[in-house]
Design a protein around this nucleic acid. Structure first.
Lengths: 146, 146
DNA sequence: ATGACTGCAAACTCTTTGCACAACA
DNA sequence: TGTTGTGCAAAGAGTTTGCAGTCAT
């Protein structure tokens, strides 16, 4: 999880495609790697601004789109406001609380993930299955502990 | 699938909640029922305008939100532009083509649907699991038949 | 040196809100 | 008749685009 190792991955991918290694790209990548979580573009901007003041939102968007093409990040559309950008690319679902809007990672079984990747198998070439679960989180659930 | 039967369901649900039966609500509901498919708010507006000229987009949005609360419609966020409103509420996934953007229904197994409803079972009260599958449709797939 | 990348500003799309009029109950 | 619902217009949120200057290569 050190910056150097993380950087190396990005640098290699950029070199492969003849794209430039900029401080913006490095800092955004480090931020995403350290916080292994889903963030909005605005949240990325705020976090990254600490290490790189003056960075702009369009640059954040452009960089995140680039990272998505490089397979370093996934877009998650919850429909509730802003898109999320998730640096965890291994299979998992996202649980969104209807009340507080909090988004948490949910593990899904290997079998389940595999099944989703083969859904509509014949004529659709599946790339990635995104699962968003709607409901109420522990803090907002009406019954039980609250 | 007749209009009368479809209307009855809506009317009953509205009455239960003391809400009014308006021509806008009836026509939107009929349109959604006949076209058992996912539509954007704009598409709903266009289709509904044929039978009810002068209807406005804010009304379409308000009505679709109401229908979602009544359990007649589901929001589907693909992240690619506009939200989709789906009148099919039984479990199924949506396959989105990265190239042409076409969205098609994908059947998912009973077991799979059940598993998703129990994901993160302990502290999260699951309401509905939404599955969006990204990839390439038959027409846009690079290999094979194209 | 040269071309890609960034920051700024503004445009754009989609969705929601405020308010006056219309219409269901 | 009293609200609720509708239409209009405008605001709001999130994302993208155009362009001039900067910086990696």
């Amino acid at each position: 999880m050190g910056c150097d190792g993380t950087d190396a991955i990005l640098v290699e991918k950029l070199r492969e495609r003849g794209q430039r290694v900029t401080s913006q790209r490095l800092v955004i990548h480090r931020t995403l790697s350290v916080r292994d979580r889903h963030l909005t573009a605005e949240q990325v901007l705020v976090e990254v601004s600490e290490g790189l003041p003056g960075i702009s939102l369009p640059t954040v968007y452009a960089t995140l789109e680039l990272f998505e093409q490089l397979g370093l990040v996934r877009r998650v559309a919850t429909g509730g406001g802003a898109l999320l950008f998730d640096s965890r690319t291994s299979p998992h679902a996202h649980a969104v609380c209807r009340d507080c809007g909090t988004v948490t990672d949910v593990e899904i079984s290997e079998a389940n993930a595999r099944a989703l990747s083969h859904a509509g198998d014949s004529d659709f070439q599946v790339d990635h299955a995104e699962v968003v679960i709607w409901g109420r989180c522990a803090s907002c659930a009406p019954s039980a502990d609250n």
